[in-house]
């Protein structure tokens, strides 16, 4: 069941009429979507429905054909981020994970998270060479902050392991930790439970809720595991063939005939 959480605030992410064409193919067709503060929103739909494409548009990897993306970080001004460079969007406070894990395999778990701290730290070439007091302190802070984040996702025992040597579930959690290190107001998770066993999914369920609780951030996630979706999300968007076909609370979606027909069908009986 969705947790109760104060949701009186405005939306932090507003997607207006987002459209994306690849050649002649329309991957997303005028989709509207928003995420409110502290909200966990799920984006579901069959494979190829355009979910990851939306993520790629939000995070700046693709430049949308039409439509707009606005963000309003808590306590900050509303800002249009359509077509902005990837790293700038991350710096503005949206961080993501990837459907096919993309960790830095030959770096340790700690170093992976340290990379996430990059956009919140400053040391340049001169500072690196001179290594003055301030730089040393910054480095020290990066390490301890990264360690704390690893602790939050329960990876402290793997802190010095090379990322490629971690088990699959741990790699997924490392990706989440790395994204959190960028201090986002909105965390975008692309199929976080993919390839996880039921036990790991259960842990992920708790982790997602805990992140919201402790970090006070919003989460937008793409997920196929309906059990996870139904248990953590406040609201759900359903997509099919590039269009949004439904939205609502988990219970509304559960009852929605269009959705059942288009997508859930027998899968949802479980």
């Amino acid at each position: 069941m969705p947790q109760t959480f104060p949701q009186n605030k405005g939306s932090v992410l507003d997607i207006v009429n987002l459209t994306m064409n690849f050649g002649g193919l329309r991957a997303i067709d005028a989709v509207n979507l928003h995420v409110k503060q502290w909200e966990i929103v799920a984006l579901i739909g069959p494979n190829g429905a355009g979910k990851t494409t939306i993520f790629n548009c939000i995070t700046g990897l693709y430049k949308p054909t039409a439509g707009d993306i606005f963000i309003q970080p808590p306590g900050r001004k509303r800002k249009r981020v359509t077509g902005m460079k990837i790293h700038k969007i991350t710096k503005r406070g949206m961080a993501r994970t990837f459907q096919n894990i993309r960790i830095f395999s030959n770096m340790t778990a700690l170093e992976n998270v340290m990379i996430g701290r990059h956009c919140r730290t400053k040391a340049g070439v001169w500072e690196a060479v001179l290594k003055n007091k301030r730089t040393r302190k910054e480095e020290k802070d990066i390490v301890s902050q990264s360690y704390n984040i690893l602790a939050k996702v329960g990876l402290t025992q793997a802190v010095n392991e090379l990322a490629k040597n971690l088990p699959y579930g741990a790699q997924r959690r490392l990706e989440i930790a790395r994204a959190m290190a960028t201090e986002p107001f909105l965390l975008l998770l692309d199929e976080p439970a993919a390839g996880m066993n039921p036990y790991e999914t259960k842990e992920l369920d708790e982790l997602i809720l805990r992140i919201r609780e402790e970090e006070r951030i919003s989460i937008l996630m793409i997920e196929h595991d309906m059990k996870l979706v139904m248990s953590v999300s406040d609201r759900i968007y359903v997509m099919d063939y590039g269009e949004k076909i439904a939205e609502g609370s988990p219970s509304e979606i559960r009852e929605n005939h269009v959705v059942i027909k288009a997508y859930l069908g027998e899968e949802f009986d479980a």
Binding site: T59, H87, T90, M107, E111, I115, H118, C119
Partner: peptide, 18 residues
């Protein structure tokens, strides 16, 4: 560190704000 990350995976590297 950013260089190493870039060598490892350019997309992930940018997505981490580099």
């Amino acid at each position: 560190r950013a260089w190493i990350a870039m060598r490892e995976d350019e997309v992930a590297c940018q997505s981490m704000g580099i």
